[in-house]
Amino acid sequence: MSIMQKTGSVQFRDVVKKYGSVTALKPLNLEIQQGELVTLLGPSGCGKTTTLRLIAGLEAATEGTIYIGGKDVTHLTATYRNVSMVFQSYALFPHMSVVDNVSYGLRVNKVPAKEAKAKAEEGLAMVGLAGYGERLPSELSGGQQQRVAVARAVVLEPEVLLLDEPLSNLDAKLRRHVREEIREIQQKLGLTAVYVTHDQEEAMAVSDRIIVMNKAEIAQSGTPRELYNQPNSAFIADFIGDANVVDCEIAGFSEGSVSLNVGGASVVLPYSGPACQHGKLAIRPEGISVSQDGTNGIAAGIAYAAYLGNQIQYSLNTGMGKLFAIDHNLSATVIPTGAEAFIHLKEEGLAFLPEA
């Protein structure tokens, strides 16, 4: 393969971004390793797009230092940073052929026309669009246009590939397909990639690591599994997947665990943080077993029950409040709305959330 990627790491050191009196990004420290795909995830206005634009050089840092590939690029504009961005709008030139769109950046960088075209055709083959070079963007589907945008970015051999909500204009089924392709290309080329989305499922599907942002700062960073199973706050528990966050009583701490009383039941969970006096319990919907077996169970009333083909969903009235539960045992009998039932808590669906 003649397209050789020279990927680099990204570091932020106490980076702040202000617009007048408004702080869009509080002092931010992060490190993205070479060859890693990191997703910036969070609600609107949390600072994720600002962070991406600071990496790209489309915004200037108010304070702090930004490094790409170990080089201080804080005061370099986008033109002088070896990064490429894939936009949610694709940003293809409608009057240019597909191959001309992909080779455009190369030609701007004074790459000879013959070499630029050869690299563009190789980039199109890489994203599964060999033979599409002479078509116009209007003759492609939305998913194909997005792949053209990825090819155009990759052929520039950037140190860092930036993706800004790249799938937001695609329907749900196509989103799954294209995100798999993006991940495959990133891994095949060993690209350092920074991906921005507000879609939790998308982030979990493509990422080596997710940085969840809230209120202009990092709320938690970790692998998809770590964030789902070990949220550090009610915000993370609720934002990454569904969670029932309920009050609990702390019975005590021991080496690597915490004992809790919740809803009349006792649970012991892994916990390695500092001891505290107050906390809550996050209960994942699949961490609740619903049955009419009352042995060591917590009484519940079925407020709503629905069979959805691949799961059974319950809304439950309990002494802890209203809970949402999912049962993946499709051979189980659906307990009807209005019936009395019992719930049992599964350790693998629970997480302790300490409070200061």
Rank of each mutant, 00 (worst) to 15 (best):
S2W: 03
I3L: 15
M4R: 14
K6F: 11
G8W: 06
F12E: 11
D14S: 14
V15I: 05
V22K: 11
L25I: 10
N29W: 00
L30H: 00
L30T: 11
L37D: 02
T39R: 04
C46M: 10
G47N: 08
G47F: 01
T51A: 15
L54S: 09
G57R: 03
E63A: 11
E63M: 08
I68D: 08
G70K: 07
K71D: 13
L76E: 12
A78Y: 00
A78D: 05
T79G: 12
N82V: 08
M85S: 05
V86G: 05
F87R: 12
S89E: 13
Y90D: 05
Y90C: 02
Y90H: 07
P94I: 11
H95T: 15
H95G: 11
S97W: 00
D100L: 02
V102G: 04
Y104D: 02
G105N: 07
K110C: 08
K110H: 14
K119S: 10
G123Q: 07
M126C: 00
V127I: 10
G133R: 02
L136K: 15
L136H: 11
E139A: 13
S141D: 05
G142C: 00
Q146I: 00
Q146E: 00
Q146T: 09
R147M: 08
V150L: 15
A151K: 07
R152Q: 02
E159N: 11
D164Y: 01
D164H: 03
L167E: 03
N169E: 12
D171A: 01
K173A: 11
R176W: 09
V178S: 08
E180K: 14
I182G: 01
R183F: 00
Q187L: 15
L189M: 14
G190V: 12
G190T: 12
G190R: 07
H198G: 11
H198A: 06
D199A: 00
E202K: 08
M204N: 05
A205I: 09
S207F: 04
I210S: 01
I211K: 02
E217Q: 15
I218C: 06
A219P: 01
Q220L: 04
S221F: 01
G222N: 09
G222E: 06
L227D: 09
Y228S: 10
Y228F: 15
Y228R: 12
P231T: 03
F235Y: 06
A237T: 12
G241E: 12
N244C: 08
D247L: 08
C248P: 00
I250A: 11
E255M: 10
G256C: 06
V258F: 01
V262T: 14
G263Y: 06
G264C: 10
G264T: 12
A265Q: 14
Y271Q: 02
Y271W: 08
S272V: 00
H278Y: 10
L281Y: 03
P285H: 01
E286W: 13
E286R: 09
G287L: 06
I288D: 04
V290G: 05
S291L: 04
S291W: 05
Q292L: 09
G297A: 09
G301V: 10
I302H: 03
A303M: 14
Y304I: 06
A305Y: 05
L308R: 13
N310G: 13
I312Y: 01
Y314I: 13
M320W: 04
K322E: 15
L323V: 03
L323Y: 03
L330E: 04
S331V: 13
T333Q: 15
I335V: 13
A339H: 11
E340M: 09
H344L: 07
H344C: 06
K346A: 15
E348P: 04
A351I: 08
A351T: 12
F352W: 00
P354T: 02
